[in-house]
Write a protein that binds this DNA or RNA. Structure first.
Lengths: 339, 339
DNA sequence: TTCCCATGTGGAACCGTTACCATATTACCA
DNA sequence: TGGTAATATGGTAACGGTTCCACATGGGAA
């Protein structure tokens, strides 16, 4: 019937309705004066032709409501969660999201930034990446595009971070309150601010409860992958005095640790209390284990809000917002066995 | 120094370099004749001003290389994998990806389609959704935007599906070859084509090996969530002659099943052979279990290629491409114990 | 009656880039 | 010496919308 396959434009609507472009614009944007008669004619024409305004043309004047999102490549579900949260927050505020995943290929960062500037994005979020070519970030900001970092970030930047210190602190405290004194920690070797915060939470919880640190109980892995957790657990279990509780700074590490324990015939939580972090896998392990959940939705919401706020008032020192965590108890922290 | 915060445009470059817009365009696109002298001046001006062409303005003529991606909301990592694969495939071909996740909110589909038409997208991919308002799909196609479905799809549409039948068939065969005859199947109740294919693979493998089906060994769940798998495993284990091997049509279901088995003290694989499907969790469970991996990269690649091909030649009947699977053996299928 | 304002409509410039056409200048060959 | 091609450059319509300005009406207040 009507409307060939091609692209319907405003002029087509105007012609069919027998009015000017201006009138069509007024009907679509519901502003200005339009007679009831013409309004109807235009609406009919729009429907009949399946007209949808060309966003590109609209954006030529004043730009388009679109937020860029740079993500670290990672198989971890945590990033998928944050990504989704950002997505929802943007959508709710009427912004679309253009995502780019960083795989670590050469020239990648440059390509992403060029793409964002070229599209005159409203703002850019950077998730779980603490190092992104500072020159390129400068380039974004010079082009008037605000940047907000999520979960990991350099100093002196607008950022939304996770209160990992308190998260781990509370987890360890739960174990201490259950009566544990020999609590092992499995975490990432070296690592950045995030890893330091988590370890610090462990140390502070011990110290405040008058428990001496035992270096033998701190095992560090090369990555967050399960086999690394398995190895770390092996080292903990094979030599001398064994812990009565194990905390892993990521669920993936704990999953590996539990593979070792399964093979060793250690029953959970009867023989050993365990707890993970980030709550991405914990509900799927055998048994389901305690963990600390990230408030991803809140991170997303606050990051987007900060970004949009910066658009309006670019001044003021960089803001750091801290988002809390939530302890999820699945009963894998119980009082220790007798000695 | 130079370049105020605002938006630098071609005219600014032209003015600084002392040439016309046309010459700037020629330098940027490396076509036409430009003197060495002018080329240098323009390149210097571009660099000094940090000029990046406005994609919106470019797109006004001829459209922008951008692919839309509609995803089903799901915590399952499988979709994250496919999403990433699509992402990579598009990027490699010079297309950006604009993703929208379907959460099931009212008016959502309409919003997404309008957004895509408004942006004059090059094409749209729909992943893991078998039902999307057909009127809206029509609307996309009427606007000249090709659509390709991934993983799930209606009949008579361009689509890239997973050969679930062979995937499950091979998995069950592995169990049979190990000597199992009482093989249980845990799958989704009802379900769509995908679920039917998987169950069919199970049935066909049994039949071709002369093993009678036993309805008591087929347990169906309301969803793919772990608790459902746990319940299904409970029903299998508590009554009637127990299976010697269990296949779950999704890793999440198997993870739940394994929680039951853990609690029941059943050792794997000594007491029971197990195998999952989709390979999203299997490497993280205790013990790591056999599963069937999805070739996500290939799905993404072929879907994007099909989409771009359709852009050039819209004619021809709808194509259905099947992507294979890969059996991942982690040693959890072993010969059954004596009776 | 005159003036003003609410109502209703259309024309045209502009957003930033590209594509096409027009115009020089120089060089080479017949 | 004129003709043609290669080299080099600029002007100017599109592209599809938005926005502002101009121009009609008609009714009510001064």
């Amino acid at each position: 019937m009507a409307a060939a396959g091609g692209n319907v434009k405003m002029a087509d609507v105007a012609k069919l309705a027998g009015v000017s472009l201006t009138t069509v614009g007024r009907v679509i944007h519901k502003n200005g004066y339009v007679s009831e008669e013409n309004r109807r004619r235009v609406q009919d024409a729009v429907k009949k032709l399946g007209y949808v305004p060309n966003t590109l043309a609209q954006g030529l004047k004043g730009g388009v409501a679109m937020v860029g999102h740079i993500l670290q490549f990672s198989p971890n579900m945590l990033f998928a969660q944050i990504s989704r949260a950002v997505d929802q927050a943007c959508t709710q505020r009427g912004y679309s999201v253009l995502s780019f995943t960083k795989y670590g290929l050469p020239g990648e960062d440059d390509r992403i930034v060029t793409e964002f500037i070229g599209r005159r994005m409203s703002g850019v979020l950077i998730t779980s990446i603490s190092k992104f070519d500072p020159l390129l970030v400068k380039k974004l900001e010079r082009a008037g595009i605000p940047v907000v970092w999520i979960e990991r970030a350099p100093e002196h930047a607008d950022r939304v971070l996770l209160d990992d210190h308190t998260g781990v602190y509370n987890a360890i405290n739960l174990m201490i309150q259950a009566g544990h004194r020999r609590i092992a920690y499995i975490g990432l070797e070296g690592g950045g601010q995030v890893e330091k915060l988590r370890l610090q939470g462990y140390h502070d919880a011990l110290r405040e409860n008058g428990i001496d640190r035992d270096p033998a109980l701190e095992q560090f892995s090369k990555s967050y992958q399960p086999p690394e957790g398995r190895g770390a657990m092996g080292r903990l279990w094979e030599k001398g005095p064994r812990p009565t509780a194990v905390f892993a700074a990521a669920d993936t590490l704990l999953s590996g640790a539990m593979q070792y324990l399964y093979q060793a015939g250690v029953r959970l939580p009867a023989d050993l209390s365990v707890m993970g972090y980030d709550n991405t896998l914990s509900a799927m392990l055998s048994p389901p284990v305690n963990s600390v959940a990230i408030q991803a939705e809140e991170m997303g919401r606050r990051a987007v809000d900060l970004l949009l706020r910066r658009r309006e008032e670019p001044e003021g020192g960089p803001a750091t917002l801290w988002v809390g965590t939530e302890l999820v108890d699945r009963g894998t922290v119980v009082p220790p066995q007798g000695p």
